[in-house]
Design a protein around this nucleic acid. Structure first.
Lengths: 190, 190
DNA sequence: GACTCTCTGTACCGATCGGTACAATCTTCC
DNA sequence: GGAAGATTGTACCGATCGGTACAGAGAGTC
């Protein structure tokens, strides 16, 4: 086993984060089974044992896992918190953490832009619209009108996505930090 | 010649827009020579006659053409106009036109996010930083401080990119229109 | 008409793609 | 220990990838 990985990840759950990074940095079509095998330390035999439907299943499960992370760590608080201002502050902190302060790219965004979008359109749309709804709800509860809440919510989501694109394009993570600060201020502005 | 295309584009210059759309909708790795041949009505022989270095050259020339379009239609006015407010208004109008009101994706952004980013990093960075500089200059001339100008400029660029991502993810071009209106207001706000 | 140069279609190349088949192994439980 | 199931490596599949070779069509020039 002279592979680059320390140890084959035997648990199925341990596999997804590794596969996730391959999709993230190569896109759906660029993520070959060879790369995935290399990243996980697993051969095709094992990969197809865990994911009988192959690459499409891997991507779908990775997307589901990302969705779950945001659901638990971001959306839930936005929906249920009795302190919406704090929930929004936690959202920006969580987003900054998740995207490694702009060094990590958003897989859902990558897929939305790519050719594979059609295959995962439903999952992608669901992810963003549930985020959008949760954030708008928090803004409503913070006292803003329905229209303002929805407008600001979409603005925040698109700011995050755009900041990731521009930070990567300019190879300058400071762009992301500045954008997050601006976004936060804009969300709760009088 | 039972191809789907009306007529083979004989002029080299006519080829680039067709190839551009293939890269746009399939990404760099997803844009196969078969697809490019189909879109242009040209076989490999012709393709490699016009672009001896193959796919990478095609993408580089497409990027150069996009760069040139923005240089002429957007950046130049931003830099030289004696009416910066009008130049900025023209920029948002031009951007809206270019991206078909949010229905068309930004190829430079797509490449920035993809695995092919490394190959075209210099071109991608140059495109965005020249836009950034030109817009910041216009804002300075409109009376804003250097810091505010640069901050607003980056914000505008990232808003455009994010709006394109979110509009496509939600399959809702209205998101783009709203974001452009917000961006314009924010650029020139007191 | 023959020479040139541009342009094109087609056959082909080795490499790699996603996916399958399957025998060998490792676990687990009795 | 031995049966049963989970897990694995490897060989292999047809298709397609980007790219090359090259013969010949087409157009212009003398």
């Amino acid at each position: 086993m002279a592979k680059g990985t320390i140890k084959a990840a035997s648990e199925r759950a341990d596999l997804l984060p590794l596969i996730s990074e391959v999709f993230r940095s190569h896109g759906y079509e660029g993520a070959t089974l060879a790369l995935i095998g290399e990243a996980t330390g697993l051969g095709k035999g094992s990969l197809y044992h865990f994911f009988p439907d192959g690459k499409a299943q891997m991507a779908a499960e990775v997307l589901a896992e990302i969705d779950h992370w945001f659901e638990v760590n971001i959306f839930a608080a936005l929906r249920k918190s009795d302190d919406p201002v704090r929930a929004i502050a936690e959202m920006t902190a969580g987003v900054d953490r998740y995207f490694h302060s702009g060094h990590r790219v958003c897989l859902v965004g990558v897929i939305a832009l790519g050719a594979s979008r059609d295959i995962f359109a439903a999952q992608v749309q669901d992810y963003f619209s549930r985020w959008n709804d949760a954030l708008a709800l928090a803004l409503r509860r913070a006292g803003f009108s329905a229209g303002v809440s929805r407008r600001r919510s979409a603005d925040a989501l698109l700011t995050i996505q755009g900041a990731l694109v521009l930070a990567r394009a300019l190879d300058d993570a400071k762009v992301f930090g500045q954008a997050m600060a601006d976004m936060k201020a804009r969300l709760l502005a009088k």
